Amino acid sequence: MHTSSYTVLHDPDGLIEAELPLDREPYESLVKAVLAWTGEDILTTRDLEQIALQLTGHARAVTSDVRRRAGQLPEDSGPRALADVVLREAEGILSAPIEGTVRCVHHRARLVRALYERLDRLEVK
């Protein structure tokens, strides 16, 4: 007789996710490689779409971290204001449809880079 068991995770505030560090290095390498592209005929449209999807998913995760960390700062702080600017930019880029173009992938790579730069500068005191 085989019985299966599973645990239902209820974490509406994302507290468990906040404790898990992002696997940053592979995405930073991907961003660096993408931003080094100079030609339009680098990869197929489908490959570019897949890369854009990967960058989009990671950008959403980093956006959550930036938002969470910025939310812990005083509302009138400079670092929080700068984080809000980056978060608004992220909303605009992430709401745009994914295209299988180098331009689209470049936008998302630059977004991941900007999010990490902002995340690194947010220190809760």
Results as ranks from 00 to 15, higher is better:
residue 37 W to A: 04
residue 26 P to D: 03
residue 67 R to G: 00
residue 46 R to K: 15
residue 124 V to M: 03
residue 84 D to R: 15
residue 76 D to P: 04
residue 61 A to F: 03
residue 125 K to F: 02
residue 52 A to T: 01
residue 113 R to E: 14
residue 83 A to F: 12
residue 16 I to D: 03
residue 7 T to N: 06
residue 48 L to V: 07
residue 70 A to I: 06
residue 6 Y to P: 00
residue 37 W to S: 04
residue 104 C to V: 01
residue 113 R to G: 05
residue 13 D to V: 06
residue 51 I to K: 11
residue 10 H to C: 08
residue 86 V to C: 09
residue 29 S to F: 09
residue 21 P to F: 09
residue 92 G to F: 09
residue 20 L to D: 02
residue 26 P to H: 11
residue 100 G to C: 01
residue 54 Q to K: 15
residue 92 G to E: 10
residue 115 L to R: 08
residue 29 S to V: 05
residue 27 Y to A: 03
residue 49 E to T: 07
residue 16 I to K: 06
residue 12 P to N: 11
residue 118 R to I: 04
residue 124 V to W: 08
residue 28 E to D: 02
residue 47 D to T: 06
residue 33 A to M: 07
residue 114 A to Y: 01
residue 33 A to D: 06
residue 94 L to V: 00
residue 39 G to P: 01
residue 33 A to P: 00
residue 64 S to Y: 14
residue 125 K to V: 00
residue 90 A to M: 10
residue 67 R to E: 03
residue 14 G to N: 07
residue 70 A to G: 04
residue 112 V to N: 01
residue 28 E to G: 04
residue 68 R to I: 01
residue 72 Q to R: 15
residue 17 E to K: 15
residue 93 I to V: 09
residue 64 S to E: 13
residue 43 L to E: 11
residue 34 V to F: 05
residue 80 R to D: 02
residue 30 L to F: 05
residue 59 A to D: 07
residue 56 T to M: 14
residue 81 A to P: 00
residue 53 L to D: 12
residue 48 L to S: 08
residue 66 V to K: 07
residue 121 R to F: 04
residue 66 V to G: 01
residue 63 T to C: 07
residue 5 S to G: 02
residue 34 V to E: 05
residue 6 Y to R: 13
residue 36 A to P: 02
residue 64 S to Q: 13
residue 4 S to R: 13
residue 78 G to N: 01
residue 45 T to L: 07
residue 52 A to V: 04
residue 18 A to K: 11
residue 103 R to V: 04
residue 31 V to L: 10
residue 109 A to I: 08
residue 19 E to V: 10
residue 25 E to F: 07
residue 24 R to P: 00
residue 86 V to Y: 09
residue 123 E to G: 01
residue 47 D to E: 15
residue 116 Y to I: 04
residue 31 V to N: 04
residue 62 V to K: 10
residue 41 D to S: 10
residue 46 R to L: 14
residue 78 G to K: 11
residue 8 V to K: 13
residue 63 T to I: 02
residue 74 P to D: 14
residue 58 H to E: 14
residue 30 L to S: 00
residue 56 T to C: 09
residue 20 L to N: 03
residue 20 L to C: 05
residue 119 L to T: 01
residue 8 V to Q: 11
residue 90 A to H: 08
residue 10 H to V: 13
residue 43 L to T: 01
residue 90 A to Q: 09
residue 72 Q to W: 10
residue 96 A to S: 06
residue 117 E to Y: 05
residue 76 D to E: 12
residue 65 D to W: 11
residue 116 Y to G: 03
residue 95 S to L: 05
residue 26 P to R: 12
residue 66 V to C: 08
residue 22 L to I: 11
residue 123 E to Y: 05
residue 44 T to F: 08
residue 57 G to A: 13
residue 103 R to I: 07
residue 104 C to D: 12
residue 33 A to Q: 10
residue 42 I to P: 03
residue 113 R to D: 13
residue 61 A to R: 15
residue 23 D to K: 10
residue 86 V to A: 13
residue 39 G to E: 13
residue 77 S to Y: 10
residue 79 P to E: 06
residue 114 A to W: 02
residue 81 A to R: 15
residue 45 T to A: 14
residue 35 L to R: 14
